[in-house]
Computed example of a mutant assay.
Amino acid sequence: MSHNIIDQGSLEVVVPKGNESIRWLEHGYPSTLARWHYHPEIEIHLIRESMGTMMAGDGMVPFAPGQVSLLGSNVPHNWISEIGPNEKTSIPNRDVACQVLPNRIQALAQIFPEAMQILTLLRRGDQAIVLRGQSAGRVASILTAMGAHHDLDRLIDLLEIFRIFVQAPRGEWTTVVTPGYQPEASPGMAERVNQALAYIKAHIGDCITLEDVAAQVAMDPSSFSRFFKRAAGINFSEMVCRLRTARASLLLVTTDLPIAQVRVMSGFRNAANFNRRFKMETGTTPRAYRQAHYH
Protein backbone atom coordinates (compact mmCIF):
# COMPACT_ATOMS: atom_id res chain seq x y z
CA MET A 1 0.00 0.00 0.00
CA SER A 2 1.60 3.30 -1.04
CA HIS A 3 0.59 6.94 -0.99
CA ASN A 4 2.04 9.43 -3.49
CA ILE A 5 1.68 12.60 -1.48
CA ILE A 6 3.99 15.38 -0.41
CA ASP A 7 6.18 14.57 2.60
CA GLN A 8 4.58 16.88 5.15
CA GLY A 9 5.45 14.63 8.07
CA SER A 10 6.25 11.03 8.85
CA LEU A 11 3.81 8.98 6.77
CA GLU A 12 2.00 6.35 8.79
CA VAL A 13 0.62 3.56 6.62
CA VAL A 14 -2.56 2.23 8.20
CA VAL A 15 -3.52 -1.36 7.40
CA PRO A 16 -6.84 -2.45 8.92
CA LYS A 17 -7.23 -6.14 9.77
CA GLY A 18 -9.09 -8.44 7.41
CA ASN A 19 -11.98 -6.77 5.63
CA GLU A 20 -12.38 -3.99 8.19
CA SER A 21 -12.39 -0.42 6.87
CA ILE A 22 -12.33 1.13 10.37
CA ARG A 23 -9.14 0.75 12.34
CA TRP A 24 -9.27 0.97 16.16
CA LEU A 25 -6.07 1.25 18.19
CA GLU A 26 -4.74 2.13 21.61
CA HIS A 27 -1.19 2.84 22.72
CA GLY A 28 0.86 4.37 25.48
CA TYR A 29 3.50 7.07 25.75
CA PRO A 30 6.31 7.04 24.80
CA SER A 31 5.48 5.04 21.68
CA THR A 32 6.55 4.85 18.05
CA LEU A 33 2.99 5.99 17.29
CA ALA A 34 3.37 9.10 19.48
CA ARG A 35 5.35 11.37 17.18
CA TRP A 36 4.89 14.21 14.67
CA HIS A 37 3.29 12.36 11.73
CA TYR A 38 0.36 12.29 9.32
CA HIS A 39 -1.75 9.78 7.39
CA PRO A 40 -4.52 9.89 4.75
CA GLU A 41 -7.06 8.50 7.20
CA ILE A 42 -9.37 10.67 9.28
CA GLU A 43 -8.66 10.13 12.96
CA ILE A 44 -10.83 10.45 16.06
CA HIS A 45 -8.52 10.58 19.06
CA LEU A 46 -8.98 10.34 22.84
CA ILE A 47 -6.40 11.13 25.53
CA ARG A 48 -7.17 8.95 28.55
CA GLU A 49 -4.25 9.96 30.78
CA SER A 50 -1.74 12.77 31.33
CA MET A 51 -1.49 16.46 30.55
CA GLY A 52 0.60 18.15 27.90
CA THR A 53 0.56 19.89 24.55
CA MET A 54 -1.34 18.90 21.41
CA MET A 55 0.27 19.93 18.13
CA ALA A 56 -1.83 19.86 14.95
CA GLY A 57 -0.75 21.61 11.77
CA ASP A 58 0.35 25.07 12.86
CA GLY A 59 -1.64 25.00 16.12
CA MET A 60 -0.77 24.16 19.71
CA VAL A 61 -3.25 23.72 22.58
CA PRO A 62 -2.97 22.18 26.05
CA PHE A 63 -4.55 18.79 26.60
CA ALA A 64 -5.76 16.94 29.68
CA PRO A 65 -7.43 13.56 30.32
CA GLY A 66 -10.66 13.30 28.35
CA GLN A 67 -9.59 15.44 25.38
CA VAL A 68 -11.33 14.28 22.18
CA SER A 69 -10.32 15.49 18.73
CA LEU A 70 -11.03 14.86 15.06
CA LEU A 71 -8.15 15.25 12.61
CA GLY A 72 -8.68 15.53 8.88
CA SER A 73 -6.80 13.63 6.21
CA ASN A 74 -3.03 14.36 6.14
CA VAL A 75 -3.10 16.85 9.02
CA PRO A 76 0.25 16.38 10.84
CA HIS A 77 -0.20 15.93 14.58
CA ASN A 78 1.43 14.93 17.85
CA TRP A 79 0.64 14.89 21.58
CA ILE A 80 3.54 15.64 23.92
CA SER A 81 2.87 14.53 27.50
CA GLU A 82 4.43 16.31 30.44
CA ILE A 83 5.48 13.73 33.03
CA GLY A 84 5.86 15.09 36.56
CA PRO A 85 8.85 14.37 38.84
CA ASN A 86 6.86 11.93 40.97
CA GLU A 87 5.18 10.13 38.06
CA LYS A 88 6.17 7.04 36.10
CA THR A 89 8.33 7.61 33.03
CA SER A 90 5.72 5.97 30.79
CA ILE A 91 1.94 6.20 30.41
CA PRO A 92 0.78 2.76 29.21
CA ASN A 93 -2.85 3.56 28.32
CA ARG A 94 -2.71 7.17 27.14
CA ASP A 95 -4.27 7.07 23.66
CA VAL A 96 -7.33 5.56 21.99
CA ALA A 97 -8.12 6.27 18.33
CA CYS A 98 -10.06 5.11 15.31
CA GLN A 99 -9.17 5.82 11.70
CA VAL A 100 -11.05 5.60 8.42
CA LEU A 101 -10.29 6.71 4.88
CA PRO A 102 -12.33 9.74 3.76
CA ASN A 103 -13.32 8.09 0.48
CA ARG A 104 -15.38 5.58 2.49
CA ILE A 105 -17.47 8.42 3.89
CA GLN A 106 -17.67 10.12 0.49
CA ALA A 107 -19.05 6.89 -1.01
CA LEU A 108 -21.61 6.65 1.80
CA ALA A 109 -22.77 10.22 1.15
CA GLN A 110 -23.29 9.47 -2.53
CA ILE A 111 -25.75 6.75 -1.61
CA PHE A 112 -27.29 8.40 1.45
CA PRO A 113 -27.66 12.19 1.12
CA GLU A 114 -28.28 12.33 4.87
CA ALA A 115 -24.54 11.71 5.32
CA MET A 116 -23.59 14.96 3.56
CA GLN A 117 -23.37 16.65 6.96
CA ILE A 118 -20.48 14.32 7.75
CA LEU A 119 -18.57 15.54 4.69
CA THR A 120 -19.00 19.11 5.93
CA LEU A 121 -17.66 17.98 9.29
CA LEU A 122 -14.65 16.34 7.66
CA ARG A 123 -13.79 19.55 5.79
CA ARG A 124 -13.78 21.30 9.15
CA GLY A 125 -11.59 18.45 10.41
CA ASP A 126 -8.79 19.81 8.23
CA GLN A 127 -8.50 22.43 10.97
CA ALA A 128 -8.42 19.74 13.72
CA ILE A 129 -11.58 19.87 15.86
CA VAL A 130 -11.32 19.54 19.64
CA LEU A 131 -14.48 18.67 21.59
CA ARG A 132 -15.18 19.50 25.21
CA GLY A 133 -18.03 19.19 27.68
CA GLN A 134 -20.74 16.56 27.37
CA SER A 135 -20.02 15.99 23.67
CA ALA A 136 -16.43 14.99 24.47
CA GLY A 137 -17.57 12.65 27.23
CA ARG A 138 -20.06 10.88 24.95
CA VAL A 139 -17.50 10.37 22.18
CA ALA A 140 -14.92 9.13 24.71
CA SER A 141 -17.32 6.45 25.97
CA ILE A 142 -18.19 5.23 22.46
CA LEU A 143 -14.59 5.30 21.24
CA THR A 144 -13.38 3.30 24.24
CA ALA A 145 -16.13 0.67 23.83
CA MET A 146 -15.43 0.40 20.09
CA GLY A 147 -12.35 -1.70 20.80
CA ALA A 148 -14.53 -4.68 21.71
CA HIS A 149 -16.80 -4.24 18.66
CA HIS A 150 -16.48 -5.45 15.09
CA ASP A 151 -18.23 -5.28 11.74
CA LEU A 152 -21.62 -3.54 11.87
CA ASP A 153 -21.30 -2.53 15.52
CA ARG A 154 -18.07 -0.66 14.80
CA LEU A 155 -19.66 1.14 11.85
CA ILE A 156 -22.60 2.17 14.04
CA ASP A 157 -20.13 3.46 16.64
CA LEU A 158 -18.35 5.56 14.02
CA LEU A 159 -21.57 7.06 12.67
CA GLU A 160 -22.71 7.90 16.20
CA ILE A 161 -19.36 9.63 16.85
CA PHE A 162 -19.78 11.67 13.67
CA ARG A 163 -23.34 12.56 14.71
CA ILE A 164 -22.10 13.88 18.06
CA PHE A 165 -19.45 16.01 16.34
CA VAL A 166 -21.99 17.35 13.82
CA GLN A 167 -24.57 18.21 16.49
CA ALA A 168 -22.18 19.46 19.19
CA PRO A 169 -23.21 22.91 20.49
CA ARG A 170 -20.95 25.73 19.32
CA GLY A 171 -19.61 26.15 22.85
CA GLU A 172 -18.39 22.55 22.94
CA TRP A 173 -15.96 22.55 20.01
CA THR A 174 -13.11 24.59 18.65
CA THR A 175 -10.54 24.26 15.86
CA VAL A 176 -6.76 24.27 16.20
CA VAL A 177 -5.29 24.73 12.71
CA THR A 178 -5.27 28.05 10.84
CA PRO A 179 -7.46 27.91 7.69
CA GLY A 180 -5.29 27.50 4.60
CA TYR A 181 -2.35 26.06 6.54
CA GLN A 182 0.17 24.39 4.23
CA PRO A 183 2.76 22.16 5.96
CA GLU A 184 6.48 22.11 5.23
CA ALA A 185 7.18 19.87 2.25
CA SER A 186 10.92 19.17 2.49
CA PRO A 187 12.38 15.65 2.68
CA GLY A 188 13.18 14.50 6.21
CA MET A 189 10.90 17.09 7.77
CA ALA A 190 9.33 14.77 10.35
CA GLU A 191 12.63 13.27 11.49
CA ARG A 192 14.09 16.73 12.11
CA VAL A 193 10.98 18.05 13.87
CA ASN A 194 10.85 15.00 16.14
CA GLN A 195 14.58 15.28 16.93
CA ALA A 196 14.13 18.94 17.79
CA LEU A 197 11.06 18.29 19.98
CA ALA A 198 12.82 15.44 21.81
CA TYR A 199 15.81 17.67 22.55
CA ILE A 200 13.62 20.55 23.78
CA LYS A 201 11.60 18.24 26.01
CA ALA A 202 14.72 16.58 27.48
CA HIS A 203 16.33 19.95 28.26
CA ILE A 204 13.23 21.99 29.11
CA GLY A 205 14.67 23.06 32.48
CA ASP A 206 17.99 24.11 30.96
CA CYS A 207 19.08 27.01 28.81
CA ILE A 208 18.04 26.01 25.28
CA THR A 209 19.41 27.95 22.35
CA LEU A 210 18.50 27.88 18.70
CA GLU A 211 22.12 26.98 17.96
CA ASP A 212 21.99 23.94 20.27
CA VAL A 213 18.87 22.50 18.65
CA ALA A 214 20.02 23.31 15.11
CA ALA A 215 23.19 21.31 15.79
CA GLN A 216 21.08 18.31 16.83
CA VAL A 217 19.51 18.18 13.36
CA ALA A 218 22.69 19.11 11.47
CA MET A 219 21.42 22.48 10.20
CA ASP A 220 22.79 25.98 10.51
CA PRO A 221 20.73 28.13 12.91
CA SER A 222 19.18 30.50 10.36
CA SER A 223 18.11 27.64 8.06
CA PHE A 224 16.75 25.68 11.01
CA SER A 225 14.77 28.69 12.23
CA ARG A 226 13.04 29.09 8.87
CA PHE A 227 12.50 25.33 8.54
CA PHE A 228 10.98 25.01 12.02
CA LYS A 229 8.56 27.88 11.42
CA ARG A 230 7.35 26.32 8.15
CA ALA A 231 7.11 22.81 9.59
CA ALA A 232 5.48 23.51 12.96
CA GLY A 233 3.69 26.77 12.13
CA ILE A 234 5.31 28.50 15.11
CA ASN A 235 8.76 29.97 15.58
CA PHE A 236 11.34 28.16 17.67
CA SER A 237 11.40 30.49 20.68
CA GLU A 238 7.60 30.48 20.90
CA MET A 239 7.57 26.68 20.85
CA VAL A 240 10.08 26.53 23.70
CA CYS A 241 8.06 29.04 25.76
CA ARG A 242 4.83 27.12 25.25
CA LEU A 243 6.41 23.82 26.25
CA ARG A 244 7.96 25.47 29.30
CA THR A 245 4.53 26.81 30.28
CA ALA A 246 3.03 23.32 29.84
CA ARG A 247 5.70 21.91 32.18
CA ALA A 248 5.01 24.63 34.75
CA SER A 249 1.25 24.01 34.55
CA LEU A 250 1.76 20.33 35.31
CA LEU A 251 4.09 20.96 38.23
CA LEU A 252 1.70 23.51 39.71
CA VAL A 253 -1.23 21.07 39.80
CA THR A 254 0.60 17.82 40.60
CA THR A 255 3.14 18.96 43.22
CA ASP A 256 3.33 21.33 46.17
CA LEU A 257 6.72 22.66 45.10
CA PRO A 258 7.24 26.39 45.70
CA ILE A 259 6.32 28.46 42.65
CA ALA A 260 9.88 29.76 42.43
CA GLN A 261 11.15 26.18 42.13
CA VAL A 262 8.49 25.35 39.52
CA ARG A 263 9.69 28.34 37.53
CA VAL A 264 13.32 27.19 37.58
CA MET A 265 12.46 23.56 36.79
CA SER A 266 10.46 24.78 33.79
CA GLY A 267 13.39 26.75 32.42
CA PHE A 268 12.25 30.29 33.23
CA ARG A 269 15.17 32.23 34.65
CA ASN A 270 13.28 35.46 35.33
CA ALA A 271 10.23 35.65 37.62
CA ALA A 272 8.64 38.58 35.80
CA ASN A 273 9.00 36.85 32.42
CA PHE A 274 7.57 33.64 33.88
CA ASN A 275 4.48 35.41 35.23
CA ARG A 276 3.98 37.32 31.98
CA ARG A 277 4.33 34.25 29.74
CA PHE A 278 2.21 32.07 32.00
CA LYS A 279 -0.63 34.58 32.06
CA MET A 280 -0.39 35.02 28.29
CA GLU A 281 -0.82 31.27 27.73
CA THR A 282 -3.32 30.40 30.49
CA GLY A 283 -5.12 33.68 31.18
CA THR A 284 -4.14 33.67 34.84
CA THR A 285 -1.13 33.87 37.15
CA PRO A 286 0.78 30.77 38.34
CA ARG A 287 -0.54 31.23 41.88
CA ALA A 288 -4.17 31.60 40.76
CA TYR A 289 -3.77 28.63 38.41
CA ARG A 290 -2.57 26.43 41.27
CA GLN A 291 -5.43 27.57 43.53
CA ALA A 292 -7.97 26.75 40.80
CA HIS A 293 -6.58 23.35 39.79
CA TYR A 294 -4.50 21.89 42.64
CA HIS A 295 -6.07 19.01 44.57
Rank of each mutant, 00 (worst) to 15 (best):
R290P: 01
E184W: 01
H77C: 09
A190K: 14
S10T: 08
A148D: 11
E20Q: 14
A34G: 10
P92R: 10
G180Q: 13
I156E: 04
I156M: 04
E82H: 13
P16H: 08
T53C: 15
Q110T: 03
Q117I: 11
I200K: 13
G66D: 04
V193Y: 04
N19R: 13
G205E: 12
H45D: 05
P102W: 02
R290E: 00
C207M: 05
M239V: 09
E12A: 02
L158E: 03
R104Y: 00
Q216P: 03
H37N: 14
R230V: 02
T178M: 06
P258I: 09
S21M: 10
T53S: 15
E191H: 13
I204R: 06
A214S: 15
A140C: 05
D7M: 14
E41P: 01
K279Y: 00
L158K: 05
I6T: 15
T178Y: 00
M54L: 12
V166Y: 01
R94P: 13
Y29H: 12
R124F: 05
P40I: 14
L46Q: 13
V100I: 14
A185K: 14
Q182G: 06
Y181W: 10
V240K: 07
S81L: 02
W79F: 11
L70V: 13
A248L: 04
V166S: 05
F227L: 07
R287Q: 08
Y181R: 02
H27L: 02
M265A: 08
V193W: 02
L243P: 10
G137I: 01
L131H: 12
F228K: 10
P76V: 06
P179V: 07
R23N: 14
P113S: 08
Q216H: 06
N235R: 15
H149G: 05
P183M: 07
E281D: 12
M146A: 14
Q167K: 09
L46Y: 07
L252F: 01
P183D: 10
K229V: 04
V100W: 02
V15D: 10
N103S: 13
V177M: 04
A140D: 01
D153G: 05
Y289V: 08
P113D: 06
V14I: 07
T174P: 00
A97M: 09
A260Y: 06
V217N: 07
A271M: 08
S69P: 07
L159M: 11
R104K: 05
I91A: 03
L70P: 04
P183S: 12
H39P: 05
V166L: 03
T120C: 06
P183C: 07
V264C: 11
P258D: 08
L250G: 09
V68D: 12
V139R: 09
E211W: 00
Q167E: 11
S225Y: 01
E160L: 03
S186N: 11
T120R: 14
L143Q: 08
L250A: 09
K88P: 01
A215P: 03
A214G: 13
L143R: 08
S135Y: 03
G171V: 00
M51K: 12
K88Y: 00
V130E: 11
V264Y: 10
R23C: 12
S50E: 12
L210Q: 15
G72P: 03
I156R: 09
F162N: 11
I129Y: 06
T120W: 03
W79A: 14
V130P: 07
A214C: 11
S222N: 06
H295M: 00
T245P: 08
